[in-house]
């Protein structure tokens, strides 16, 4: 199975690990990520006003590219996923945005939300299957791992339709599949400080400390995330309980025995 792949800006720079482990593991699991040519940055944040069109166009281009190729579009970064998925929903369901975006784009055939957007974790769950993944694991991790979801993957749940926004299970199921022991802690779906960490470092610090304390208190030995921004913020924690944080793809590679090769 070949998927269109949208890596996003950070996976090409600060989060190269997230990207290359994703691609290598895909091969081992029998699917391929075909990077969209000339993709443009999603903007990192879903446009904040309903009247903004231009800032949605890079997402629409990527979505249309996948549509032309007849492929589903796979993302790894939480922010890219959030922005592209929500833009796709707009193109499908909001007539005004669809019309105006298509007027800008001048595509051969107007784009109307036809592409299916999948997060890499959804590919693992729904296309590969966690049970199949489990069979391919050569090095079960055996560690206590806390899933850190953050906000972008889960909310608004009606549109991103990723998992139960208040009690998600997909990353926990993933952890089980790679032989780890998932640790449930209540702040796994609370914001890491996200976008404000550039200007409000102290405030973001408090938020990640709370996450670390909660996860460590519940017995986690490490955290995994799908988001480079979460990674950055979590690593800024100055809590005495600070845990190491990994991208989920890195642990996937480790469990599949690919980590050293990559």
């Amino acid at each position: 199975m070949v998927y269109s792949y949208y890596p996003g800006c950070t996976l090409k720079t600060k989060a190269k690990d997230l990207d290359r482990y994703a691609k290598e593991c895909a091969k081992a699991l029998g699917f391929e990520l075909e990077e969209i040519e000339n993709w443009q940055c999603c903007g990192g944040v879903y446009p904040l006003g309903t009247d903004e069109i231009a800032s949605k166009l890079s997402s629409v281009r990527a979505l249309n590219e996948a549509k032309v190729k007849g492929q589903d579009l796979v993302t790894v970064c939480s922010a890219c996923h959030h922005v592209i998925k929500r833009t796709n929903d707009d193109m499908k369901n909001v007539e005004d945005i669809r019309t105006r975006a298509n007027n800008y784009m001048e595509l051969e055939e107007p784009y109307a939300g036809e592409t299916t957007v999948l997060h890499y974790l959804e590919v693992l769950r729904d296309r590969v299957g966690f049970d199949v993944l489990k069979e391919k694991v050569v090095k079960p991790l055996g560690r206590k791992i806390g899933a850190y979801y953050g906000c972008l993957l889960l909310r608004p749940s009606k549109i991103v339709q990723f998992d139960n926004p208040e009690n998600p299970t997909i990353i926990e199921d993933f952890i089980k599949a790679i032989g780890g022991e998932p640790v449930i802690y209540p702040y796994r779906n609370e914001c890491c400080g996200g976008y404000v960490s550039l200007k409000e470092k102290e405030m973001a610090g408090k938020m990640v400390d709370r996450i670390m304390d909660s996860a460590a208190g519940m017995g986690a030995e490490e955290l995994i995330t799908a988001c480079p921004l979460c990674m950055y913020n979590l690593n800024k924690s100055e809590s005495a309980n600070k845990l190491p944080v990994y991208y989920f793809t890195e642990l996937l590679a480790e469990a599949l025995g690919l980590k050293e090769e990559v």
Partner: peptide, 9 residues
């Protein structure tokens, strides 16, 4: 360590 997406956003 600042990731690109933080500046973008």
């Amino acid at each position: 360590e600042v990731p690109q997406q933080l500046l973008m956003s």
